[in-house]
Design a protein around this nucleic acid. Structure first.
Lengths: 384, 384
DNA sequence: ACTTAGTATTTGATCGATCAAACTTTGGGA
DNA sequence: TCCCAAAGTTTGATCGATCAAATACTAAGT
């Protein structure tokens, strides 16, 4: 098998110099059309392709974004990362970027990985997920001026760190809308089934429910608290709690749940108790929610991915902007330059009981906007 | 910020040559211990790290494995790829390899991506998933002698292609064991709920059930066919079918199902019909199965990942072996050098009805071997 | 015709590592 | 003591591209 052709070979065939070939590849507009044509013909003739390693070495850019694959992906919402990854990979490819995976045992190890990948010129930027309060990774990335975007806003003190770019899903808006939907159906005693207080994400979602409830019924904080149940993430835990609740006195009409896991647990308990019309709404719109006909708030991960890349590379750029780079409209346009808050959409299904999920019968509408993604889903065949 | 140190800098500090530094990094055993010590000290002092791009350019190895992220990951078993990816990334890292993702719109586009990634020296090898009959990707990879391993065996004609390395989960063994389990519990009228005939994976799984049934009850093919129901993948479809079945005459005791989606549909129908002790067993042991307490056959994706890398890089190698390379025991050890068939394990839960899944109460045993992975699972928090 | 500014193209150096071959040191053995 | 093979180390070339600067070419202006 012959050597793969290089710029040199192309140059010879097209009777131009190396550099001209390089220019045709990287800034075609500065090459005279006639020349460009010859070069392009030569490229096609030889089946030439750029050697990525050589290019990276010279340009000091890897055109690669690193993302840590979360260690625990067995949970019911593991698919969130999965879908995000997919959207990201696809959109990154359109901008000539690749996604590289890595794993880490803990946050400190993750920083160590960052260092290796950065110093080795393996990646140009990182995407950080599962951010938490006083996150050491963020501190390191900012201190080292390594480009990054986090999927998940910073909670706590450094909420407004000027150098922290982030994308997030607006949990508030999601559950505000979910609650409005239930109110619109005439329900009044709508409970919230959340995680223990203190989780930024969870609190934010609950605030969406709370706001809708206050607007509609003028409840005070004490009354809201009475309508709230809290559990650790997990189907069985959630299920037991709601079973206990149904066994005792209670007067709820419906439940807005912080996640699909929690919602599924609740739904199973509701079903067991024979409450045929007791709506339950989850969050994430996981495959399970689709499968059992659970209403849920859908994160639009393609939009999240788009936002991630916009922050990293500008609206249409094909390279990662240096950390702290003046962004397009830094002066004019407020926080848009540093954040993206994606509004999720509510997908309504017959989630109060385990009835047949018949496409024609289920009301899979989107309250915020009309689209076709959710309705057109198919279950894919096994991988192997 | 100063330039990152290079081998040259390290060499200067350690008073040796570039090459010696390189040797310490790549074949430490050929460097005299005293020298090695000095070099290592210099590396530590300067915080030196190898530049991956330069190394790749020179060695013509990217130390990267490419894998296509399947376009449709909304299905209930999308997490199979997800978990496989995770295991793979982790184990690849231990061998100094990275995983790079890409997407493609169809099989031909995927081949086009292969070509670009290969020619660009972006990846050393590919992992192919979702293989199918007369797969053009496989043909191309073999013809071009690009190293690859498929997760999923070749179905049809090229089953024994000498240059096709593959890893797969033994669906036959999985459902054989599942069926034996039910027989052991005294059940006799055990039905099979599968995909339409013709899917290699599906047929293989059914054969496991069929073999166990023949062994135990001496059924003939016609009788087996009577016990078989078939559906396209998907919860609602499966559910409707089983509802119809229950509405009509039937005398089944239990169902072995080709996937968790199908099993979940069946389970919902069973539940609806009030059949409190009608076992259902699925395949994949997805998060959903865990959540609703569905017995299922678990693919051991860490083993699949390990097998993938063994085939690609040898038992402990740190680089991809050339396609068609003589493998360790090519003469002596039969097909072990080209395939890995991973035996899945049955995870038994209270899958006949939607009852509380209480850890202490559920019998989450592994029939094949005892381990702790499945039992120790937690649901992870949301990503953001 | 002759600068001149701008456009188009070429040349030489370089990114940071490893390969291949040359050179130097070391330790026995005759 | 001298020689030689083996072990250890250094030197020069190279992987394939892009950068930076130099050169060649065009087209307009006087």
């Amino acid at each position: 098998m012959a050597q793969l052709p290089t710029v040199e070979d192309v140059a010879r065939v097209a009777s131009v110099s190396r550099q001209t070939v390089s220019n045709v590849l990287n800034s075609p507009e500065i090459v005279k059309p006639a020349t460009r044509g010859r070069v392009e013909a030569a490229i096609a003739e030889l089946g030439y392709r750029q050697n990525a390693s050589a290019r990276r070495l010279r340009t000091r850019q890897s055109s690669t974004i690193g993302i840590r694959l979360d260690p625990v992906t067995n949970g019911i919402s593991g698919s969130v990362l999965d879908r995000y990854l997919h959207a990201l990979t696809e959109q990154a490819a359109e901008r000539g970027m690749r996604i590289m995976l890595f794993t880490a045992t803990d946050l400190d190890d993750e920083v160590e990985q960052y260092r290796t990948l950065r110093d080795g010129a393996d990646v140009d930027a990182f995407i950080v997920t599962a951010t938490r309060y006083a996150d050491p990774r963020i501190d390191w990335l900012i201190a080292e001026r390594v480009p990054f975007v986090s999927f998940g806003r910073p909670w706590g003190a450094d909420m407004d760190a000027r150098n922290h770019l982030w994308v997030d899903v607006d949990g508030f808006a999601g559950h505000y809308e979910a609650t409005r939907h239930l109110i619109g159906r005439g329900l009044t005693r709508i409970g919230y089934f959340g995680w223990p207080a203190g989780s930024g994400t969870g609190d934010e979602r609950r605030r969406g429910w709370a706001t809708a409830m206050v607007e509609a019924f003028g409840l005070d904080e004490a009354q809201l608290e009475l309508l709230t149940t809290r559990t650790e993430e997990g189907v069985p835990q959630a299920r037991r709690l709601i079973e206990t609740m149904f066994a005792a006195e209670h007067d709820l009409d419906a439940l807005v749940c912080v996640s699909d896991s929690v919602a599924l647990g609740a739904m199973m308990a509701v079903n067991e108790a024979g409450r045929k019309s007791f709506p339950v709404i989850g969050f994430d719109n996981t495959a399970v929610a689709q499968a059992v006909g659970l209403s849920s708030v859908e994160q639009r991960l393609d939009q999240v991915a788009a936002g991630t890349l916009e922050l990293l590379m500008g609206a249409t750029g094909r390279r990662v902007l240096p950390h702290g780079e003046e962004r397009s409209d830094d002066e004019a346009g407020g926080p848009d330059t540093r954040h993206r808050l994606i509004t999720p959409k509510l997908v309504v299904r017959r989630s109060s009981h385990l009835v047949p999920v018949d496409e024609s019968e289920s009301t899979e509408i989107e309250s915020t906007e009309v689209g076709s993604t959710a309705a057109g889903n198919h279950y894919r065949e096994e991988m192997q």
